[in-house]
Simulated assay, not measured.
Amino acid sequence: MPIGEFCNREVVFATRTTSIIEAAELMRRYHVGDLVVVDEIAGKRVPVGMVTDRDIVIEIVAKSLPVADFSAGEIMGGQLVSVQETAGVVETIRLMRAHGIRRIPVIGQDGGLVGIMSVDDLLDLLAEELAALAKVAPREQAREARTRER
């Protein structure tokens, strides 16, 4: 199952020059805790970093720094970890676990942003799959009972 089939394709994003106030407004408006920071390259949005609500609090607010003096590019996390949309669900989970990240941008073959996957999204997906799997045994028993009656 390629992760591109399950990722959220409605990604809220910012550029490196997006002010922290604008970033916070975007998070509030769209009810998200993170923004993918992108560079526009040849008509596509290429992810270069992430900014989370926690980044804003830890890097600026907790230090009593003037919020208006910073941009998303200045506080985004270091090295961005992303995953190809063709990667499998298990591969994506392993990548997220190895890097200790809760959200991961999903990119296409051209490096452009196509979506985002979060731990919560993966938990929902796995819960659905486990629920479907749990229904196998009773159905098998019912099928066997019908076949044996004949």
Rank of each mutant, 00 (worst) to 15 (best):
100 G>I: 00
52 T>Y: 03
116 I>C: 07
43 G>F: 03
72 A>V: 08
43 G>P: 01
52 T>L: 02
50 M>Q: 04
80 L>S: 12
107 I>L: 09
43 G>I: 02
66 P>V: 04
67 V>S: 04
56 I>S: 08
120 D>M: 15
108 G>S: 13
111 G>D: 03
116 I>M: 10
37 V>I: 13
51 V>E: 01
67 V>I: 15
75 I>A: 05
101 I>S: 01
16 R>E: 09
24 A>P: 08
32 V>R: 11
113 L>E: 01
38 V>L: 11
106 V>L: 11
81 V>Y: 10
16 R>T: 14
95 L>W: 04
120 D>H: 14
80 L>T: 09
113 L>K: 07
125 L>Y: 06
79 Q>G: 12
108 G>A: 12
67 V>T: 09
78 G>W: 06
96 M>I: 02
62 A>E: 00
93 I>G: 05
60 I>D: 00
106 V>S: 04
53 D>A: 06
30 Y>A: 14
59 E>I: 04
85 E>W: 05
47 P>M: 07
113 L>T: 07
87 A>C: 13
100 G>Y: 07
57 V>D: 06
106 V>T: 01
101 I>D: 05
102 R>C: 06
42 A>F: 08
90 V>I: 14
96 M>N: 01
45 R>W: 08
56 I>P: 02
118 S>H: 10
35 L>T: 04
28 R>K: 15
81 V>K: 12
95 L>Y: 04
68 A>F: 06
108 G>T: 04
15 T>N: 11
116 I>E: 01
21 I>S: 12
88 G>S: 14
127 A>T: 15
49 G>Y: 00
27 M>V: 08
60 I>K: 00
24 A>R: 14
